[in-house]
């Protein structure tokens, strides 16, 4: 799904969630190659390494968004989740929400025999040896009067070379990885979707 279309859909769902027309909802999508900038994009633009020409040649577009976080990349083979939740009345804690998203992803990864961990100070889910963890899932969230949007991006079979176009999340000294790379075997997207749905339902229900 095109990033802009998904963005519009999210905005609509946020309003519908606020009006009570829909309940808590999880959108799962894959995007064509796209670089997105967090709301603090004055800093984030400096974290795009590639030139406009390089990006155009690779068919990668750049979008500014209203989410938290720095710059990130989305593309085929990456499962992007947009939970549209009303955190009121008893879940009004933005950090707790981010930790919950991480927890859901850690549980989902466990289904594939992967131990995902948190790295203090660096949001997202990481794998690998301590001190040299690689990022497998990124998190960037927007909360509008306690209705959530944006969310997480989990690398399944993502072309990791595309992350070299940016400094992911503005963190220069860390690598990114994917489910496929960690397990060393092909992974079906539908299996990952099911694992993520089950895990998120578990955490947020």
């Amino acid at each position: 799904m095109d990033y802009v279309d998904a963005h519009e859909l999210q905005k609509r769902l946020v309003e519908e969630r606020r009006a009570g027309v829909i309940g808590d909802t999880l959108l799962l999508v894959e995007h064509p190659p796209v670089i997105t900038l967090g709301a603090r994009n004055r800093i984030a633009v400096s974290h795009i390494i590639a030139s406009d020409e390089q990006l155009a040649a690779l068919g990668v577009t750049v979008h500014e968004t209203g989410r938290g976080g720095d710059v990130t990349y989305h593309g085929p083979g990456q499962l992007v989740g947009y939970p549209i939740l009303d955190l009121r009345p008893d879940r009004c804690d933005v950090h707790a929400y981010v930790r919950d998203l991480e927890q859901g992803l850690i549980v989902a990864l466990a289904a594939f025999g992967i131990e995902g961990v948190r790295v203090p100070g660096l949001s997202g889910v990481w794998v690998g040896e301590t001190g040299r963890e690689e990022k497998i899932a990124a998190i960037g969230v927007r909360i509008s009067r306690w209705i959530t949007s944006h969310g997480f991006a989990l690398n399944v079979t993502t072309n990791l070379d595309h992350f070299r176009l940016i400094v992911p999340c503005g963190i220069a000294d860390r690598e990114v990885t994917s489910l496929e790379r960690v397990t060393g075997r092909p992974v079906a997207m539908v299996d990952v979707e099911n694992a993520v749905i089950a895990a998120m339902r578990n955490v947020f229900a």
Binding site: A39, G68, V98, S123, I139, R142, S144
Partner: peptide, 11 residues
Amino acid sequence: FEISTDKVDAE
């Protein structure tokens, strides 16, 4: 207004 903390932006 919009604020930013860690990975979260909130309106």
